[in-house]
Design a protein around this nucleic acid. Sequence first.
DNA 1: ATTATTTCTTGACTCACATCAACGTATTGA
DNA 2: TCAATACGTTGATGTGAGTCAAGAAATAAT
Lengths: 197, 197
Amino acid sequence: MPDHFFNKLSKSITLTEADKAIFRQYIIVKKLRKRQYLLQEGEICKSVAFVSKGILRSYLVDEKSNERIIQFAPEGWFISDLYSFVTNEYSNLNIDAIEDSELVLINQEAHAHLENIIPDFFKFNYLQYRGAYISLQKRLTDMFTLSAEEKYIKLLHIYPDIIQRVPQHMIASYLGLTPETLSRVRKKLIAKKPERS
Amino acid sequence: MPDHFFNKLSKSITLTEADKAIFRQYIIVKKLRKRQYLLQEGEICKSVAFVSKGILRSYLVDEKSNERIIQFAPEGWFISDLYSFVTNEYSNLNIDAIEDSELVLINQEAHAHLENIIPDFFKFNYLQYRGAYISLQKRLTDMFTLSAEEKYIKLLHIYPDIIQRVPQHMIASYLGLTPETLSRVRKKLIAKKPERS
DNA sequence: ATTATTTCTTGACTCACATCAACGTATTGA
DNA sequence: TCAATACGTTGATGTGAGTCAAGAAATAAT
């Protein structure tokens, strides 16, 4: 089951068979049904999840109980509330499955231990965080700079796959729009550049 | 001059005198006058800057030639275009000094080399990136969730020092507001809760 | 199969913030 | 010291996206 996970690691670092054997001792494979929570606000985020199948989302719920999606994680991605994971503070994020999914979980102790005994795993996380920071910065400037339509088009180019798989109102939430606005944006776009059949 | 820099590192990792001696071989101390550029868009970001005195900003300029401030870096902070620094692609960011400033520069080669020979420096950067990612995520959700007034109040609480030192229109730009809007927000706030003398 | 639930669309209306424009006040610099 | 430039305020007006409400389509559940 964790093959997909090992493949992911192998893209950035060198993993020996011995390393894999160690990993297997510490990781937990878990399935999640659609709509099932991995983390609920108020809990402490005890593990990082690698998605080997399916797709999850992290989001927070504001005072008016609107959901704000922070991140989608389809297969090959990691998801967690890093803040809570690192500080052991209560999370204000929710993470749940959008489709039936399969995960590889690494809990706090395992994560720290693995980083210690497998230096390349430490390096892997270094690269992950650095990369995540860089892309989040891009996203932030886009959110500032772009109109609703431009945001949607950009997402369409960067993650066409996610747009296919995820309900439209979640896309809207991720982009910081209302479902109504996104619906109108799409209508306008379809009028401009009709679907080829 | 790089004392401030060493202090900063020492807060997260252990630095021996030998380590410091190595650092001194690789770092460059540089002064920047107010309004002077450290990086201009179209260049490749060749170094990471630690601010030991003064304050810098990174920003991008959109089609309508509005400035969008990404980050302020007062003393004790790092600034660079990490994307360009890591990938060697052309930067679309500008970095300049808001006040006369003093920097410690570490260029790409030095940075990579120092990470190799001083494992704790590697660890330090790991922590930096991780922390930067976490706080950027908070900022992103704030930008989505909060009104102009709430954004300003939040900034006032988190970085009161920066608000004191930086022209108001730059605060507006950082918050994704126009100077006019910020001016009106402040007027309203002062009316509500008058300055104590 | 048909009810229930979730998701998407459309229209009418509102509003927070942007834009445009003019002017007052600091700061800076030869 | 007196332009010049940078910075901040205020008012009038515009607009993109939100809100509210109602119904249509699609999906899921029994």
